[in-house]
């Protein structure tokens, strides 16, 4: 049994998610944007692990989910950074507001 309510963990996850979201939508440096997205994924992971313990039916499945999420996040980070490197090689910039080739 734990003395900490589930809502405390969920609130922490919420705060971290919001920080990540804000960072992902405002930062100019693409690396920081990617990192912010990692932070958001972490917040999700906290939620998953929390519910694995405090859910209606506690189960190890939540932790398994978190592991999968971490794996996918790692893969995403690797591919994302590879794309970033390729872009940088072509455009000589990693500023996200200069990546507007979708417009033309």
């Amino acid at each position: 049994m734990s003395t900490i309510p589930a809502s405390a963990f969920l609130s922490l996850a919420l705060i971290l998610f919001c920080i990540g979201l804000y960072g992902a939508l405002t930062k100019r440096n693409t690396v920081i944007v990617l990192i912010s997205i990692e932070l958001m994924l972490n917040a999700v992971n906290i939620n998953l692990v929390t519910f694995s313990k405090y859910g209606i039916k506690p189960s190890i499945t939540g932790q398994i989910f978190a592991l999968f999420a971490i794996t996918v996040a790692a893969a995403e980070a690797a591919v994302g950074l590879a794309i970033l490197i390729a872009l940088y090689r072509n455009r000589r910039t990693i500023n996200i507001d200069e990546m507007d080739s979708m417009k033309n």
Binding site: V31, I70, A73, A77, Y88, I94
Partner: peptide, 27 residues
């Protein structure tokens, strides 16, 4: 176990990867 994986992958791998990316590009 998740905590250990977190430290290994996030604090270790991803962060290092990001640092490399930063250093490889104009920062």
């Amino acid at each position: 176990f998740v905590a250990v994986v977190q430290i290994l992958i996030y604090a270790g791998a991803i962060t290092i990867l990001m640092l490399f990316a930063i250093m490889l590009t104009k920062h």
